[in-house]
């Protein structure tokens, strides 16, 4: 995908930058918006952000490598984050992750995020999602699935398979 920030998005970002006495503060918000639009944060997105905020590309690049939510590679269209921290682990999150991984033909012994070859799904373990009282929890894109069961997993997989196209 070629890198072109639509004027409407650029206008939104220009407005965001005015929220701070120092433009650099807007970096994280820029990266969120660009990742939402393009599916990941590319080298071009880093350079564009740096240019807009009067920074060196390294100032932005070091954010992308520090903050776990930013991705340098395209993500699956359905992004599944399974919470692995204690309360969810006590409620069976390891078997939930395995269920997703096996259902999608991914490798259960690999650590870190994994994306299906067709780009439909990314599955990963993440740390506590601040919903431990309804463990185990899974985030599917922006939505939280509480007290997640294997049949919830199956529903997520079925509806993710139904979504075509690229991000």
């Amino acid at each position: 995908m070629s890198f072109k920030v639509p004027p409407q998005l650029e206008a939104q970002l220009d407005e965001l930058a005015t929220h701070y006495p120092q433009k650099r503060s807007a970096s994280l918000m820029f990266l969120h918006a660009l990742q939402e639009h393009f599916g990941h944060v590319s080298r071009e997105a880093v350079e564009w952000t740096a240019g807009k905020l009067g920074l060196q590309p390294i100032n932005v690049h070091e954010l992308v490598t520090f903050y776990p939510m930013f991705r340098r590679e395209p993500l699956g269209r359905t992004h599944v984050k399974v919470c692995r921290t204690l309360s969810c682990a006590l409620a069976g999150s390891a078997s939930l992750r395995r269920h997703f991984i096996e259902k999608l033909g991914l490798n259960p012994s690999l650590h870190g995020p994994q994306t299906t070859p067709d780009g439909a799904f990314t599955v990963e373990f993440v740390e506590c999602l601040a919903s431990c009282g309804t463990a185990p929890v899974v985030m599917v894109n922006d939505d939280l699935v509480e007290k997640c069961t294997t049949s919830d997993c199956d529903r997520v997989v079925a509806s993710g398979r139904g979504k075509g196209g690229t991000r």
Binding site: H19, Y20, Q22, R24, S25, A26, S27, L28, M29, L31, H32, L53, N59, E62, L63, F66, Y67, P68, M69, F70, V126, E127
Partner: peptide, 25 residues
């Protein structure tokens, strides 16, 4: 204004939070 973090626990520590709000690690 609302400012969003990006998945790092250390942003909860108040001075880490401040650095993050300044657009840094």
């Amino acid at each position: 204004h609302v400012h969003r973090g990006a998945g790092a626990y250390i942003c909860g520590e108040e001075t880490g939070l401040i650095e993050s709000l300044e657009g840094k690690r």
